[in-house]
Write a protein that binds this DNA or RNA. Structure first.
Lengths: 128, 128
DNA sequence: TAAGTGTACTGCATACAATAATACACTTAT
DNA sequence: ATAAGTGTATTATTGTATGCAGTACACTTA
């Protein structure tokens, strides 16, 4: 589990952990049933507080992405059937809109933006 | 200037103001030279503190999107030539990557995501 | 002169992130 | 049984960011 944290980022550490674990799962580097590093292991290797790792794991479990067994550890859950949470989809659309606005102000044109999106969709298995 | 704020959002009010003004400019609803509502006007109509509006205007001016003349008011600047700020482009790519991850976990597939992106690019004049 | 601009500053309340230091409940291996 | 390793819970503390309140200043226009 090689995670790269940026302490100077404005996004909280526990969110960075969530993002990267999700990415590893989408890329099939972490497979269903795989054991994650323990709270104390990960917190020690990242030199952060155990509570911060615990918070990330709890949120991932709340989303059904990992499962935790007391005394045994935390594991990648089976492939989840994504439920169309209309509220979250709407929030994602707003984020996408903001991203498009920022891109246009950075001089990124339509084709370039689409190309970037396709790149990440391919990288993360968006067509599987 | 019809702005819609969400006090319960986690994104700061001053950022929400920035986002919406940028959107109005991209949509050509606000044109170069147009006068924006004054700090006190806008803060009064939105029922927020004048300092919050001032912070939004200052950031917009720092980005070269509006111009402010003391005692006269703030105005939409001339069309800016977007400079390819490599650092900001890189940050935007990371945000896009996160957005793709979230979308996939929400069950949004490749074609649907691309369709959403194209919609906003069209709406905001990404091909002009 | 008066009213309307943007700006600057202090203080205050609130919320969140992150840490520190413990303690608890459970599982596994010895 | 015991010890070590799991996740979890609690309390306290620190730092940072947001937002508001209040006030004051400098400038432009009528």
């Amino acid at each position: 589990m090689l995670l790269h944290l940026d302490p100077r980022s404005s996004t909280p550490i526990w969110e960075q952990i969530i993002h990267q674990i999700k990415e590893l799962i989408l890329k099939k580097i972490l497979l269903p049933g795989d054991k994650l590093a323990s709270v104390r292991e990960l917190s020690s290797s990242l030199v952060i507080n155990p509570n911060t790792v615990s918070k990330a794991y709890q949120e991932l479990e709340r989303q059904g992405i990992i499962e935790t067994l007391r005394g045994k550890g935390t594991f990648v859950a089976e492939c989840i059937v994504p439920k169309a949470d209309e509220q979250k989809v709407e929030a994602l659309k707003q984020s996408l809109k903001q991203l498009v606005i920022e891109a246009l102000y950075l001089g990124i044109d339509r084709t370039e933006f689409i190309k970037m999106a396709e790149h990440y969709l391919d990288e993360l298995g968006g067509s599987t």
